[in-house]
Structures are given as C-alpha cells and as structure tokens.
Design a protein around this nucleic acid. Structure first.
Lengths: 195, 195
DNA sequence: GGTTTTGTGTATCGCTCAGTACACAATATA
DNA sequence: TATATTGTGTACTGAGCGATACACAAAACC
C-alpha cells in the first residue's frame, strides 16, 4: 500500500464538527479548521475532498453522536410520559450546564436551517429529515402515552425544542424557560403516577 | 450646502433589506448590494458608513415595516382572542402566499438569531428585543382574553411562530402546519363567540 | 458667477478565502 | 532492499471580499 494515516478520523471530524457548530459553515475558514483539527489542508483535502465534504462528515457525526442518542430517549424503554420528560430534561441540562460562550451552544442543524439550508437543497434535506424524525419520535411517545391530539402536541413540543435551540445563544435563560414550558405541558397532559 | 442625494433613502434601504433577508449578512456581498440598490459603493459608504451600517438600517426598517405592524395586530383593537387569531392568520398567509423561492421567506431576525447573533452582541440584543416584544404582546393579548397561564401559553405561541419562521424555507408545508397548530390552540383555549 | 460643500464614478487597495501543485516522507509489498 | 503507493508539509494560485483614494459632478450660498 503506502504511508498510513497518522490521525484518528473520528477525532478530526469531531473537532471540525465543534468548529462548525460554533461558527457555522461559511464563517469557519480552512485556517480555522487546520487549527481545530491539527491537520494541514493538504491532509484535509486528501481525506475529505473539500470543505463541504468535511462539513458533511461533521453533520453525519453530529446526527450519530448528538441527535440520535437524544431521540433514542423518546423511543426506547417505551416510556411515553417518562421518556418525554427525560428528553426535555436532557435538552434543558445541555443548555443550562454549558458556559455562556461554549462553542456547543444550540443546535448545529437549527443553525443550518437559517443559514445554508436557505439556498442549499442538500442541507435543506438534512435539516428537514431531522425535523421529521423529531416530530415522529415525539408523536410516537405521545401516542403510547395515550394522548389524543398527538400530532398537534408533537408539533407544539417540537416547536418549543427548536425555539429553545434557536435562542440558546441569544438568551439562555429564556431558552431554558421554553424547555420548562414543554415539561410543564407534558406534566399537565399526563398526571404524574403517584409513587 | 452642496450636491443633493439622487436616491430615495428608504427605497435603497428596503432593497438592501430584501437582499439581507434573502441571503443573510455575510453572504450578501457589496457587489450584490450595488446591484440590488442601484448605488455604487462610494455612495453606499458615503451614506451608511459600512456594510454593517447599511445592514443596521435594513434591520431597523424591517422592524418598522414588517415586525411592528404585525405586533400591532396583537395590541390594538383590544381584541384578545380575535387579535391572536388575526396575528397567526397573517403569519400563515405570509408563508403560504409567497412563492417557494421568494427572497422574503421566513424572518430576517430569526435568521440572524442563528447567524450573526451567535457572536455579535449588538445583533443578539436586537434579536432578543424582538423576542421579548413578541412574548410580551402575546402575553398581553392572552391576559386580556382571560387566560390563566398566560406566560406559558405566550411562550408556546411564540415558539410556534418562531419555529414556523425557521422552517419557512426548509419545509413550507410544515411551517404552515405549525401556524395552524397555534390557531387550533387559540381556538381551543377560547371557545368561539357564537354569532 | 465664483466658491464651497456634498454626492457620485472609477479604479484600486490589502487581505482572506477555498482550493491546488508539487516535493518529500513513510510504509506496505515484491 | 527496491519500488510502488499513499499521506503530509510548503508554498502558492486566482478570485472575491470589504473598504478606500481621489477626481469629477452638481447644487447651495456668498
């Protein structure tokens, strides 16, 4: 064969992911990416083909390591009410715990929705896929929790979640308040099981 | 004095506003702005000082001509239920009526929230000001409509509105569905007056 | 009408961007 | 060990960016 890759692909992709998460696609320059990943651009282009190729890999990693593990809370354990609460408490603690200037505030895909996805069909598809997966998971959880009006309630909860991500860097307090509102709604819809 | 300005300031600002609305701050280049406004860059810099100065003027115009007229629906006429319905029907028709590729899809400020406002304190303040004004107007309308839980309901409605704007370019159908959900909620909270 | 003051047009600045050319380094195979 | 193959480092490209310098145009004031 030939010389071996001297870097771990996943660590490089995750470093790039955090940079894109922080600054967005356009504002993250190749110089920034070199600094964040420790790679020279020759290696980046050799391994990923283009800035966009690295971004797509970063988004894929984001879906695999951030989004889907969270959504799994909603579907696994068949928990319905408990899993809805757990999902929003997880989001809440993510916004609440991170420092004000953390590069990982908010949601990479929500940020894309207002940026790239406005004029890029591929990005649009990825964002819309996330949206539909989120709504479907919420709807399933609501349905097994015995809710009538599951579709409307799923849309309401999804909106609260997306808006909270949108506001995470603008006003963290209000972002948390939106997630608390979601939790209040869930608890009002499904009275707590008395222990 | 001296030579007079040969252009109408408001028409120039609104042309720039529509371009920023469409492409965002960074992606709108000065060449684009020259094309959209019909001005040469010397005139732009003379009148607005910088690209950012023109952007700030565009945001101000956006607040004056788009945001505040809509919010006024909520506060004037003391309509409570009727004004809440009117507000979301106005949003709904804006998303529904505009062609898929309209530069005016979505909300300039919501787009800023995920872009500029992530790292620019001034933009953050503007976006947060919009958010608080929106929530307050909704809360007032809900309060005069006789709602208990006005704060939670205001947050829920604001989330549905912001998410609808966020998704306007990603999935217009779903964007409208979110606004319909808001309308359903309002109608469920406040049973219709029988004629 | 001359002068001063202000708007506009042209041409260009320095810089950063994404992407590339190419020599060199390293390792698997023969 | 020789060779083929692949990864890495250096240095660069052309294009586009925001911003500017400066000459010229036009209108208000004396």
């Amino acid at each position: 064969m030939g010389r071996l890759q001297s870097f771990e692909r996943t660590t490089v992709v995750q470093a790039a992911r955090d940079l894109f998460w922080d600054k967005g696609f356009e504002a993250a320059s190749l110089a920034d990416l070199e600094g964040a990943t420790g790679l020279k651009r020759s290696s980046i282009y050799h391994a990923f083909g283009s800035k966009r190729g690295l971004f797509d890999a970063a988004v894929e990693d984001y879906l695999d390591t951030v989004i889907r593990p969270r959504l799994r809370i909603l579907t696994e354990a068949g928990g319905s009410r408990a899993s809805l609460v757990a999902y929003f408490e997880e989001l809440r603690s993510a916004v609440h715990a991170l420092p004000e200037d953390s590069p990982r505030r908010g949601c990479l895909l929500v940020n894309c929705a207002a940026g790239l996805a406005g004029h890029d069909d591929l990005a649009r598809q990825v964002v819309d896929g996330y949206r539909s997966e989120l709504i479907r998971s919420l709807q399933d959880a609501l349905h097994t929790a015995g809710s009538d009006r599951a579709p409307e309630r799923a849309r309401t909860l999804a909106s609260l979640g997306m808006s909270a991500m949108l506001l995470a860097r603008v006003n963290a307090t209000e972002s948390v308040a939106l997630l608390d509102t979601a939790l209040d709604e869930i608890r009002a819809w499904f009275p707590a099981p008395t222990p």
